[in-house]
């Protein structure tokens, strides 16, 4: 059974229905599928013609120099780009077979299933408990007992429980950067999402905190699909299963930089035998 694609906006797609592709997508469910995806901010095209499949239970890394649209692509997965008034999408982006940008789709529902962790830790100015319990609370869970369990489980999963279990009512802004970021991860997990999107989660942290979060990611892979944007190639090499490499094309006339997906493959392949020369240049540090 092929995954049902709902072609939207009059785009005709050719779906690869060869036995090999069918088998491949059956073996592991495709969580996100982007076909010919372009994201615009007004007239400016931030990223163009992205074709990518994010598979369940994997960590997919989006790497590349700055300004290539990696974050833009990531944020389109949970419709965070909606917060920017001039943003719009062309092409197709499906989540488990459903067109994410279908007019009937409610972004709030989307974001309850697809959680996000941001570059700079952004704890709410509330207690640690209230931070982590925020998601379940708006999902309608009111009972203290249930909330306690969820908070404990999420903080445990995020490898933070032992450190904060005695001060859950303390302000979340009083923790160190690494702790804050782990709390943000716990907060995202508490809503029981399907997918975790991470936008450069370690770039504001020191190496030790980074290492802890990378360990965490590998742990979390068991239960969540994770997509991570990172500047740090070595990090991508360490944690991810698949890697997508983006670069920027400069339009000669307008001098605008538009991101483009160069290569998307298993991490081991991308880092040892990259197919594209640009990928190889980036990996070996010749630019970017």
């Amino acid at each position: 059974m092929t995954s049902t694609d709902v072609p939207a906006k009059g785009v005709t797609l050719s779906i690869d229905e060869s036995p090999a592709a069918t088998a491949a997508s059956q073996a592991q469910d495709v969580v996100f599928r982007a076909r010919d995806l372009s994201v615009f901010y007004g007239d400016f095209r931030a990223v163009r013609n992205v074709d990518i499949d994010i598979r369940q239970g994997e960590i997919t890394a989006l790497i590349g120099p700055s300004g290539c649209g990696k974050s833009t692509v990531l944020r389109s997965f949970n419709r965070m780009n909606d917060l920017i008034p001039t943003a719009r999408l062309e092409g197709l982006l499906t989540y488990r077979g459903v067109d994410l940008y279908h007019p009937k789709v409610d972004p709030v529902e989307v974001r309850r299933r697809i959680g996000m962790v941001f570059q700079k830790p952004n704890p709410f100015p509330k207690s640690i408990f209230d931070n982590v319990a925020y998601g379940p609370r708006i999902a309608g869970i009111k009972k203290k007992g249930e909330l306690n369990e969820i908070v404990e489980a999420s903080l445990t999963r995020a490898a933070l429980w032992e450190e904060v279990k005695d001060r859950l009512s303390a302000s979340a802004t009083g923790m160190s950067g690494g702790q804050q970021q782990r709390m943000c991860i716990a907060r995202a997990i508490a809503s029981n999402p399907d997918v975790l999107l991470m936008d450069e989660p370690c770039s504001a942290l020191d190496p030790i905190a980074t290492a802890r979060i990378e360990e965490l990611m590998i742990e979390l892979k068991k239960d969540y699909t994770i997509v991570i944007v990172t500047h740090n190639m070595q990090q991508a090499a360490r944690v991810s299963d698949r890697t997508a490499f983006f670069t920027a094309e400069v339009d000669a006339k307008t001098e605008q930089r538009t991101g483009v997906l160069v290569e998307f493959d298993l991490t081991t392949t991308v880092f040892s035998t990259p197919a594209d020369e640009r990928t190889e240049n980036y990996i070996t540090g010749r630019f970017g």
Binding site: N78, M80, L83, V108, E109, V110, R111, R112, R113, G115, M116, V117, F118, K120, N122, P123, F124, P125, Y134, G135, I138, A139, C184, R187, A188, A190, S191
Partner: peptide, 14 residues
């Protein structure tokens, strides 16, 4: 700060 709003939106708040 916008980061506060994004954090809340990111967990699926209306």
């Amino acid at each position: 700060p916008q980061s506060l709003r994004e954090g809340a939106y990111g967990v699926g708040a209306t």
